[in-house]
Design a protein around this nucleic acid. Structure first.
Length: 113
DNA sequence: GAAATGACTCAAC
DNA sequence: CGTTGAGCCATTT
């Protein structure tokens, strides 16, 4: 496992239940800005070895589930999120204004609600 | 080590 | 938000 993956997992563990974060922001928080795709790869390689990593709280910038993994399906991810209180749109989108992770509330989520 | 791939993102239409 | 095209980076082949 690489240092990069550890950083991603560490940052992901900081995400509280009921909150979601997109790949780009997660990479930014982990200290690797611009590594959005690498985050996707890191989560893809994720397995039972890291049970405490809430991979389901990671979605794409559009606010939608992007998961396309046989072991971690988008259906399962949505179910996990809903059980945590995350609400989905009719179109399957998540409201960043309600469930977006603010990290330290220092970063402007730019939620124009 | 080069080329291809992917759980991405942003800017333009 | 919908789609397209280009940029991005780590892992895989």
């Amino acid at each position: 496992m690489t240092e990069f993956n550890e950083a991603i997992y560490a940052a992901l563990r900081r995400v509280p239940p009921g909150r979601v974060v997109n790949y780009g922001r997660l990479a930014l928080v982990a200290g690797y800005p611009g590594h959005a795709r690498a985050v996707g790869r890191a989560l893809h390689t994720l397995d039972e070895s890291y049970p405490d990593v809430p991979w389901w709280r990671v979605i794409n910038a559009a606010g939608r589930i992007s998961t396309n993994c046989p072991t971690h399906t988008a259906i399962e991810q949505r179910a996990r999120l809903e059980s945590e209180g995350v609400e989905f749109n009719e179109q399957g989108f998540i409201s960043w204004g309600r469930h977006g992770w603010l990290e330290n509330e220092d970063i402007s989520v730019a939620s124009s609600q």
